[in-house]
């Protein structure tokens, strides 16, 4: 592989980064090639020493997505960051995906519980409206109490979810710092 090919592959593997970011990354590698050539190395030697452009792109993108997720912790950003870190290598897959699925499942279960607590209020209310024969006020009040608990649980879960996402992004950052991809 020669210099142009390397630069092309690196650029095309860097999806989702801003153009300015891409240009800056490529500038660094151009400098690297220029320096190597003035030292009398061939383009092929330099390419071989640099390693695979795809793996480099993965590493750079994982950095970028984790930074984005740290700056704006939205679900979309966190998912992109998780996806990018998983792509780094097999060990990252295990260390990231396993805990993520476990935590996400627990959070989802609690959200579902909160919503079902709230939604069950519809039953007695409908009975009240249609004037069903087996309507008891006790049911209505018990149901209102449970819905109240549901609302509190949902509120609590809102904060739990936000803090868990932030914490997980920190874990991702730790992951790309410590755990090596393939190169």
């Amino acid at each position: 592989m020669n210099r142009d090919r390397f630069m092309q592959e690196l650029r095309s593997s860097l999806v989702r980064l801003t153009e300015a970011e891409k240009d800056d990354i490529l500038r660094d590698f151009q400098e690297y090639f220029d320096m190597g050539l003035t030292e009398g190395k061939t383009e092929e030697e330099i390419v071989a020493a640099l390693g695979s452009p795809q793996q480099l792109a993965k590493d750079l993108q994982a950095n970028y997505h984790v930074e984005q997720a740290q700056a704006h912790t939205s679900t979309g950003n966190v998912f992109r960051a998780i996806w990018a870190v998983i792509g780094l290598g097999f060990l990252n897959l295990i260390l990231v995906l396993g805990p993520f699925i476990a935590i996400a499942a627990a959070i989802l279960a609690l959200w579902i519980a909160a919503f079902s607590f709230i939604i069950q209020l519809a039953g007695p209310v409908i009975q009240l409206i249609v004037g069903a024969d087996d309507f008891y006020l006790f049911h209505l009040f018990a149901s209102i109490t449970i819905a109240g608990i549901g609302i509190l649980l949902a509120l609590g879960m809102y904060f739990v979810t936000i803090y868990t996402l932030r914490w997980f992004v920190r874990y991702l950052a730790f992951n790309i710092r410590i755990v090596k991809g393939e190169s």
Partner: peptide, 16 residues
């Protein structure tokens, strides 16, 4: 012994 390119992601990270 490492692939030379892998220093660049580290440099970008510590810059950021």
């Amino acid at each position: 012994e490492i692939s030379e390119g892998s220093i660049y992601p580290i440099l970008r990270r510590i810059l950021k």
